[in-house]
């Protein structure tokens, strides 16, 4: 079971992440009243990028990108995918820290590219991260304090018996705050600051071409998968569906249905995020930080106080 999980969940995340990229382009096109590219367009792009002859700026330019992609895959192993969670040691804290590998790798890689656009992109990326980490940490601490555990698997399991945390009263505010910062975590508009194509030539990606860009694209896909699945796991109960799947827990069909339910939840959250992405322009970085440190932080902070008081 664990071995299958280790092999399957990264592949599933890869497929789903790239599917989401394609879907987002298609849906955005439809919102724009366009026909749009085929849903497989990201796959075509990645195949093309792999066959291109790119340039490299040095060893860290290569290794940083490899580290970032490997880091993303490792985080996926620590996230419960339905009932399947290959690794769980260290709990939510380990996930929080493993999630640093990916941006650090990208930052090292494009740091060595010695391109000012890349550096500005990285600086914005880290500032944006600082912006959304403040509410995010309040939210995660509220959840961990409420369930009195640091294990994400445990949090999902408790939710399957007591109901989604989004529906439970003490965590409602935290859930709202998480949804408010979700676009910032995913890096979609209005928080598309770090990779702004028109302003800073796609930021960190400016010197990436060929296979480097392919890796960066895959990493982006995985990053979106991670951001959304963390939300679904923390607040939408992971695989649980109003107790319907309860009788077949731990059977093969239970696991498969659990994953399907989980992915459908992710899809809904993702499409909601896309609608936000479609209608908003881009913030400036200081506007983004001001926003993130105002409403989401307020909600998350009150949420944490409520959780502490209820306990």
């Amino acid at each position: 079971m664990q071995i299958w999980g280790i092999i399957l969940s990264p592949l599933l995340a890869l497929v789903v992440g790239i599917f989401f990229l394609g879907l987002s382009r298609k849906i955005m096109a439809r919102i724009h009243w366009r026909y749009g590219p085929p849903i497989t367009q990201p796959v075509i792009d990645i195949i093309k990028l792999f066959s291109q002859k790119s340039i490299s700026h040095g060893t860290i330019f290569d290794l940083g990108l490899i580290l970032s992609l490997a880091g993303s895959f490792v985080v996926i192993l620590f996230l419960p995918l339905g009932q399947m969670c290959p690794l769980s040691s260290g709990g939510l804290l380990a996930i929080l820290y493993l999630m640093l590998l990916a941006p650090l790798g990208i930052a090292l890689s494009s740091g060595e590219a010695a391109n000012p656009n890349s550096s500005i992109g990285i600086s914005r990326k880290f500032l944006l991260a600082l912006g959304y980490e403040v509410p995010l940490l309040f939210i995660l601490l509220a959840v961990m304090t409420h369930y009195n555990t640091i294990s994400l698997v445990e949090i999902v399991r408790i939710q399957s018996t007591t109901g989604w945390s989004f529906g439970s009263l003490p965590l409602l505010l935290s859930g709202i705050a998480y949804f408010l910062i979700l676009p910032a975590i995913l890096g979609i508009r209005p928080f598309e600051i770090a990779g702004a194509g028109q302003e800073i030539s796609s930021g960190a990606n400016a010197e990436f071409g060929g296979k480097f860009l392919a890796f960066s694209t895959i990493q982006h896909a995985l990053h979106e998968f991670i951001g959304i699945s963390l939300f679904v796991n923390l607040f939408l109960g992971g695989w649980s569906l109003f107790g319907i799947l309860e009788p077949i827990t731990n059977t093969v069909w239970g696991v498969i249905l659990g994953i399907i339910v989980f992915l459908i939840k992710m899809l809904i959250v993702f499409i909601l995020g896309l609608f936000i992405n479609a209608v908003f322009p881009r913030f400036r970085i200081e506007q983004a930080i001001k926003y993130l440190w105002k409403w989401p932080t307020l909600f998350a902070f009150i949420g944490l106080i409520v959780v502490v008081l209820v306990k």
Binding site: F50, K53, I55, H57, A114, A214
Partner: peptide
Amino acid sequence: FKAGRKAPKVDQYDNY
């Protein structure tokens, strides 16, 4: 990464 086409190293001044 190695399986992809080899990326020659360029100077820091060959930059966008």
